[in-house]
């Protein structure tokens, strides 16, 4: 038996916002420690890794580890039945090939129960090494989102360069070229507004910009996000959800011929 209740059910809605444009179906790995997911986009250029710790849930019960496959388009439809302030309970019986989602209003005056079929999905997990990155930049997620949106109307690729002076996003297209630099800034009162640059070695990598725009759909999960870069390695873009878990995106760089 698997059962888990989230007081802030809309967390699942927010997570789905970041997932559904990248992958259409995925296996959720249920274990006593929590719920995780790893899935690649169809072109195997980007990978999403989700982790929700068991203690992020109000009641968490997972009697045995199990993978449940879900069509994320269908899951998004089901989630429309949930109000933004509703609690969300997920239930999956080990002997059944479906999942039950229960949405309850905080005042307990509305109760919705939806059953959704599960599916068998062949998925391969990739081993992601614990990298020591050359550069880790933390910045407000709204700022990152704005930058990649703005640049995507100018060009298709983005060159990300980190030096001790800050992080620079550059693109070029028919319109012209654009460079946006964010310098380290920790003068603001709120830590979530800070930009910090943790640099081992300066690094420059080029990526397909549209994936960054997709990753930025997770902006509502966290005020801060981080970009971790190493020479000739996929970039890691992370949105941490406090001590509840995280969503991490990996994107393979463009390689010079």
């Amino acid at each position: 038996m698997f059962e888990a209740k989230l007081i802030q059910g809309n967390l699942i809605k927010k997570i789905m916002e970041g997932l559904k444009d990248l992958v259409t179906e995925a296996n959720f790995d249920l274990s006593p420690g929590g719920v995780s997911l790893q899935a690649m986009d169809s072109s195997h250029v980007a990978l999403v890794a989700l982790m929700l710790r068991g203690d992020a849930f109000e009641n968490y019960r997972c009697d045995r580890p199990r993978s449940i496959g879900m069509n994320l388009v269908n899951l998004s439809k089901v989630l429309k039945c949930a109000g933004n302030d509703d609690t969300m309970t997920l239930k999956a019986d080990d002997t059944q090939n479906n999942i039950t989602l229960v949405f309850e209003s905080q005042a307990e005056d509305k109760y919705a129960e939806v059953q959704m079929e599960l599916m068998d999905i062949d998925s391969e997990h990739l081993g992601i090494p614990d990298n020591t990155y050359d550069a880790i930049v933390k910045m407000p997620s709204a700022q990152f989102s704005q930058i990649v949106k703005d640049l995507s109307s100018i060009g298709d690729t983005v060159t990300v360069s980190v030096t001790k002076d800050g992080i620079t996003f550059s693109t070029s297209g028919d319109v012209g070229t654009a460079h946006i630099t964010c310098k380290q800034n920790t003068s603001m009162e709120k830590e979530a507004d800070h930009t910090t640059v943790n640099l081992e070695h300066p690094v420059t990598l080029t990526f397909a910009l549209r994936y960054f725009v997709t990753f930025a759909k997770s902006t509502s999960l966290s005020h801060q996000m981080s970009i971790s870069l190493s020479k000739e390695l996929p970039v890691m873009v992370e949105y941490a959800m406090g001590d509840m878990g995280h969503i991490r995106f990996y994107l393979a760089p463009k390689i010079d011929d």
Partner: peptide, 14 residues
């Protein structure tokens, strides 16, 4: 010219 890398070129199977 540059080509798009694939994740399998960087991360191995589990």
């Amino acid at each position: 010219r540059s080509t798009q890398g694939r994740l399998e070129s960087f991360f191995g199977p589990v």
